[in-house]
Design a protein around this nucleic acid. Structure first.
Lengths: 142, 142
DNA sequence: CGTGAATTCATACTTTTGGCCGATAGTATT
DNA sequence: AATACTATCGGCCAAAAGTATGAATTCACG
């Protein structure tokens, strides 16, 4: 997975840095050995602190956006589901009867039946419960 | 790509760190003062790096284990929904007809009708779509 | 302006579902 | 043993849902 990969890469990079520092240290003699070691330790310490802080900051966000539904417009277009049909589908999902849907949309039950029939064709279903299941699969409704 | 981005960012951070160190080193010849300066800089740098890494780690977590459903047993007990009734409810959710459910469970359609009727009473519904909606609200089904 | 898609409605018919009754059998509980 | 709950089944009727077909209207687009 990319996550593990990035962690490993990070570790490798870290090791490389330390190696370079060591190399530079021995190459151009100079400063005391413990300084870089100290720096390394401090770096590690503060990185973990940063990770902790970062997690703390984002923890609230972690819980929130977990259930955010977005309608798959592409799928809708692909199936050729119209606005009106989608309205009807949504109301079916809310458990309304044809009569109730008709009243809500100010049309006759005949119209609703036509819409549902067309929906069933497009969703390859023969019952409303089946249509709901399919629509959920296709990410058309939540 | 995110991976490449992280490597680049890390590299930039390293370059900045080294640059600052060098700068400080040549500018002030004082060892004791610059040590603390180094440490401060390193600490700040690595904390922010850590925050970034931490955010990265949690951000992935947000997307991946999004939402797995767990049935609300308490609610089921409260409503007095039996095992068999729950089976039927699940199959209704999958879009099956009474006949199909009956065949799947090796019982008659009469039995399924009895179960559904009882379910409707317990879920305060009068249609299967409504029952599904209610059951979802109550976290009984996904 | 014509064409096609979308929306609307109706009628007739079939299938599915739901409401209401009663009944039997097994299991668990008291 | 009596009681309560679960699961099973059947019949009857009515309501809801679904199928098929045809048709009128509106509306966007070329």
């Amino acid at each position: 997975m990319t996550l593990r990969k990035s962690i490993i890469l990070y570790g490798v990079a870290m090791a490389a840095l330390i190696g370079i520092l060591k190399f530079a240290e021995y190459r151009f003699y100079v400063r005391d050995l413990s300084l870089e070691l100290y720096l390394g330790l401090v770096a590690a310490l503060f990185v973990s602190l940063g990770v902790w802080v970062g997690r703390r900051l984002t923890r609230i966000k972690v819980i929130e956006p977990s259930n955010q539904f977005s309608r798959d417009e592409a799928e809708m277009k692909k199936l050729g589901i119209t606005k009106r049909e989608y309205e009807v589908l949504s109301l079916i999902a809310e458990g309304l009867s044809n009569k109730e849907i008709a009243d809500k949309l100010f049309v006759s039950t005949s119209t609703i039946k036509t819409h549902t029939s067309n929906l069933f064709l497009k969703l390859d279903a023969s019952r409303r419960t089946q249509a709901l299941q399919r629509a959920k699969e296709l990410q058309i409704i939540p």
